[in-house]
Design a protein around this nucleic acid. Structure first.
Lengths: 225, 225
DNA sequence: AGGTCTGAAAATGTATGATAAATCGATACT
DNA sequence: AGTATCGATTTATCATACATTTTCAGACCT
């Protein structure tokens, strides 16, 4: 996840792995904490901290006096067949669902409420992304900065928090950013469009451009599977 | 958060409260774990579990060997112009803005994707809210449970995380829930409408009903100021 | 003076063992 | 048959000790 030098986080990883390997299904009961300490050979405190981490990411749920169970909440496929533990594709779909709701409207607000310094930041990050795309570099990070700059410009404090959350972290942090085979030139064009409409202070068209941009990403992702 | 009978969760709440009361700001350092045990009068394990909860919701961050800090990820306004602390009314407006984007669509998805058990949960929480409203009790908590149940039914793992965040929480813990003077009977009617459309498995109308519900809340809040 | 090393201080991380509280089923009693 | 109690299982909490990381002041060397 993040810092692998912290034992409880490593243990959290190996519990996830164990769930995969030993073919646990949502709803199944895990060994109790004592048994786990022996299996992984760490103290109970560490096991419990690891479990807390997995609970906070919806992977496990704990019922006092009963045991620890694999969560049957979403994110875990209940497919009798596929059963791939956390279905990353599904998670990505969910992500697009949210972004499609938030980011276009946010772009509109950015145009309406942004200040000069906000726009500067947007243009600036836009340039970086463009260069990286042209030179064929990996531009995920810069792309996040671009979207975040727009979110900031919306001056909605909540959006400010949510957008980075869904872009970077990915809400809990266990979704690896996935390369969807988007056409670099197309993305470039779409970004340019967004920036242009922002420069023109046209909220509606900027919103639409952002919507198209996200839809394109969604489309590419869906087609990929 | 959910089950108040679990001490560490209650402690998490009181830490949040302490942050509010003692006027901690993002980036500030909290008392160390030992001191906190004395302040709250619980063991260090419990303090640590409480902190873990707040870390997982981005309210705190822990730096080993240094201390525990109020997260600075949230958008505390870094306005060049004064505006040092957050205007709560403004924050509530922002909150409604987001809810208006997310929750109606989420309700639609809930109808489309929910399972029987999800619907049961929704109806169940609905009943609780109704009774509390009728008897004149404070129904904020039950109301949150109601909205959360709908969010859960949408089976979008991201929404699952965001909706509780914005409903309970106060997005980082800075916003005290504020009573807006909504008409109890009107809210009752609106909830009934939402539930009815869910029962009828009518996603569009359910979505619309939720939208009206939130708009009503927004309206009441705006009129209040 | 200036850099480097060392070691204490402060804080979180981990280990260990004991006790409390919740859950559930079995057993005994009415 | 019901129900009340007890015991086994398991998580929750407490208490204490030790480990590891981070920081920084002060000794030490050049």
């Amino acid at each position: 996840m993040y810092d692998k030098s912290i034992l409880s986080q490593r243990v959290a990883e190996s519990i996830k792995q164990m769930i995969l390997d030993k073919d646990y299904h949502p709803g199944d009961k895990l060994p109790n904490e004592i048994e786990m300490t022996q299996m992984v050979n760490v103290s109970r405190s560490t096991i419990r901290e690891a479990i807390k981490i997995l609970v906070s990411t919806n992977i496990l749920e704990v019922r006092r006096g009963k045991g620890t169970y694999v969560s049957d909440k979403p994110g875990l496929t209940k497919d009798p067949l596929g059963m791939d533990f956390i279905n990353e594709d599904r998670l990505l779909m969910d992500l697009f669902e949210i972004r499609l709701l938030l980011e276009p409207e946010m772009t509109k607000l950015a145009v309406q409420r942004g200040r000069p310094s906000d726009f500067d930041k947007i243009f600036q990050t836009y340039e970086i992304v463009s260069e990286q795309i042209k030179s064929g570099e990996n531009h995920t990070e810069a792309d996040i900065a671009f979207h975040t700059a727009i979110a900031d410009a919306s001056h909605n404090i909540i959006m400010n928090r949510i957008v980075p959350l869904i872009n970077e972290g990915i809400v809990g942090g266990y979704l690896k950013t996935k390369d969807n085979p988007e056409s670099a030139e197309e993305v470039l064009r779409q970004h340019e469009k967004i920036v242009d409409y922002i420069k023109q202070r046209n909220p509606q068209k900027a919103k639409k451009a952002m919507q198209d941009h996200i839809l394109y990403g969604l489309q590419g992702f869906k087609g990929y599977n």
